[in-house]
Amino acid sequence: MRDLTHEILELIRRTSSDLPKDVEERLKAAVEKETPGSAARGALETILKNVELSRKNSSPICQDTGTPIFYVKYPAGWSTLQLKKQIRAALADATKRSYMRPNSVDAVSDKNTGNNLGGDDFPYIHFEEIEGDELTIELMLKGGGCENVGAQYSMPDNRLGAGRDLAGVRKAVLDAVHKAQGQGCAPGILGVAIGGDHGSGYIKSKEVLYDKIGARNPDPKLAALEEQLTREANEMGIGPMGFGGKTTVIDTKIIGLSRVPASYFVTVSYMCWAYRRRKMTVRGEEVIYD
């Protein structure tokens, strides 16, 4: 089997230092909406300067290089055992090269492993066998500050007056945005899962964040709710960094899951503006980065 360690290292470098264009464009548009001279506008301007510098220097966009989350989709013939070894080797190398901060801390002993390699769960790697002959590896770096403000609601939620329907989902998500203020490095992107259980809700609410900004759910009802939530979250005026301002949320992505009759969860994963996610595709001899 081909050794992809070097190519995966490049994927990590790009993910950590080169913010995807779709995110950058939204941030640029957001600057124009803020009042000249305001703290909100200053924050966005600094963010954009930082994006440019990190790209130029191959240095981390944010020092919190987060939890590395890999999604590997492979056709028959690849060994997941080997791929896992290669991913781990690339990550340790990326840490040595300062593309990544040593970010894996043993929760019991409090020791930082120094190389981003923890137990089986760190980095998080999801493998899925697929048809066809292309291997893809997607990487997302999910920072701790925004991960901490993720929230799960078990519906109905009486405090919010929110029931087990899309109107209730809306209220839960708006509440989560209000609570996240100041902590998740706004402007952010919302990943929302409706249904599932405690575990799958969080996993799927992150998975939707791999999608492009502006990609809408094929169900028109959910697509409309995605747009409504982005608009209403911005009406709250929390603004970049929580300084007050027009842009609090850049985009919202919703996925509907199956649930058992007794449970109805709404899960919100909050992604900060440092929305680092990249993909590599192995097609024959070629390796393509998006």
């Binding site: 200053g42 600094t46 963010i47 300067k49 240095s59 966009i61 944010c62 920072g143 960094m241 900060c272």
Partner: peptide
Amino acid sequence: FHAIGGAATFIAQ
């Protein structure tokens, strides 16, 4: 003092 969250390379300079 509030610094700009995530502006890590910029601040490192």
